[in-house]
Amino acid sequence: MTGLAIVVLLSLGRHPATGRPRRNPDDARALATALALAATRSGSRVLAVHAGDPRAPVLRDYLGQGLDELTVLDMPSGSDPLPSLREHLVALSPDLLLTGQRAENGEASGLLPYLLAEALGMTLVPGVVGLDLQGDQGRFTQALPRGRRRQIEARLPLAATIPAGTAGLPLPSFAAARRGRIVSLPALASPDPHLVAIERQPWRQLPRPQPRRLKGSAIDRLKSMTGGGEAKGRLLVDPDPETAAAQILDRLGEIGLIRASHQSVTSRDTDGRTER
């Protein structure tokens, strides 16, 4: 077995109660996964990358997880990290790209891993909670809604995202945080076109929704409150791509995310691409 080049993307999070900067918990878990994986394969390197301000003190918490070095693509807040990250990662050509499912700050659309995977020509496995590598063959456990799990096999190089709310957050070691180095690289600071384009509104208090009086037995009320009722829709096991795409488009049409009512399989395909 040869060593792996594992790239971990780390963003800054926000504590929900105090709004203070913190590690993004999903990114922190991605880093923990990467470090654990690197420890099992000799010669492996963990290349951690953050796009933002290299002086942010919270970055040291990532170092505290046992990381020796963190590369920061220095850019002002509000910049679009994608172009710089793409350029940097292409040069690194990693075997594995790991990151949290979405950021806690900024746009937080969760799209960045997809866009980077596309640029690097990698497969992306979202929602990974377990990872087992044999040679360049990976076996992934993927988290699905309602606690379901799915086994996926894929070949390196690939990208994987760690979902929110999986096992505990590793505490940073004060000593390791002190020892680790932050390497700052000048980066292209292109303004985020989305953040420029969107309309901003001041925050306002919405009327609190009246709690709905729930009917039925205790178990029914519990189910309706926790979303644990009967599963809606259909479960397709190993569908052919055509059927799967048609189902997704149907669903998107149903919930009003696309307007075009689809007639033929080919037109659905183009619609799907433009809407992504």
Binding site: H15, A17, G168, L169, L171, P172, S173, F174, A175, A176
Partner: peptide, 23 residues
């Protein structure tokens, strides 16, 4: 164990993290 290895059992690590972030 805590400052060098960050090896704490149970909920201790999570609570210390909360303490660091929320006081």
């Amino acid at each position: 164990q805590t400052l060098e290895l960050a090896a704490l059992p149970g909920k201790a690590a999570l609570v210390l993290e909360d303490l660091r972030l929320t006081d």
